[in-house]
């Protein structure tokens, strides 16, 4: 067991730290993610039926009773689990672990749409293309050419902006250097007005995420399930500090 854990320690790579103490819940990350990743909008009726395709959601719960009531905002996205429940259940390896990046990859063109992975995700982080969603011309002009546009019947989810990871690595290789901390920033972290989202290499003990993940406020969502999430939350709210 210890060996197993050690191995997992060694194999982790990309990670994200979300400081819920300074996350204001403003939803800029949600919009940024959607605009970066060609996430289609689905309209009011589909949103009302729980079919929004946001890869990232801010989970908002209320705490306390009036007048001490206050919401908690928790950005929820694919946790890029080290031992992901979505991966073994996919019959075609469309949901598969990237050995290089140590993230969960969704290979759109291999997906046949069993939706098993989505059932099995305890974070409800996966979304399904129920239809072919239209982006009426000329609005399709802004679609990001680095990200595949998904057609109907395909699962999708947060990729940690893998297109930026690949691009960042190729850029570094072309310049003949290693990828440095801060080279690669996913769209959500880039937009976050309070810099609550930090992305980086967990295998590098000196990286910003590694340092932050060692905070005593750090916790992982549903850690008891043993999925080894790569998204680390820093406990926030009024209980902390002061």
């Amino acid at each position: 067991m210890a060996e197993l854990l050690k191995e997992q320690e060694e194999t982790q790579k990309w990670g994200m730290v979300i400081d819920m103490d300074i996350c204001s819940g403003c939803q800029a990350c949600v919009t940024a993610c959607s605009m970066e990743n060609n996430v289609p909008f689905v309209g009011e009726d589909e949103m009302a039926y729980g079919r929004g395709l946001q890869w990232m959601r801010i989970r908002r719960y209320w705490e306390g009773e009036y007048p001490e009531v206050t919401p908690t905002h928790q950005p929820m996205l694919c946790q890029q689990c080290g031992s992901a429940p979505c991966e073994p259940v996919c019959p075609t390896f469309a949901s598969v672990h990237s050995q290089e990046e140590q993230i969960n990859v969704q290979v759109y063109n291999r997906c046949i749409g069993t939706r098993y992975c989505a059932n099995n995700c305890p974070f409800s982080a996966r979304v399904f293309n129920w239809f072919d969603y239209e982006t009426p011309a000329p609005m399709n002009s802004y679609l990001n050419p680095d990200v595949s546009v998904r057609r109907r019947g395909i699962m999708e989810k947060c990729t940690f902006c893998v297109q930026r990871i690949v691009h960042g690595r190729q850029q570094a290789a072309a310049e003949g250097r290693e990828v440095e901390d801060g080279d690669i920033v996913p769209a959500c972290a880039q937009a976050c007005p309070t810099d609550a989202i930090v992305f980086g290499d967990l295998s590098d003990p000196e990286s910003k995420v590694s340092k932050m993940s060692r905070s005593d406020r750090a916790f992982k969502e549903l850690e008891e399930l043993g999925t080894q999430p790569k998204v680390i939350y820093l406990k926030g709210g009024k209980s902390y500090g002061g």
Partner: peptide, 15 residues
């Protein structure tokens, strides 16, 4: 022809 959306499944009930 239309997509799985014509069924009533939704997040989080994919089956």
């Amino acid at each position: 022809a239309t997509g799985m959306g014509v069924a009533g499944i939704r997040r989080p009930i994919y089956w």
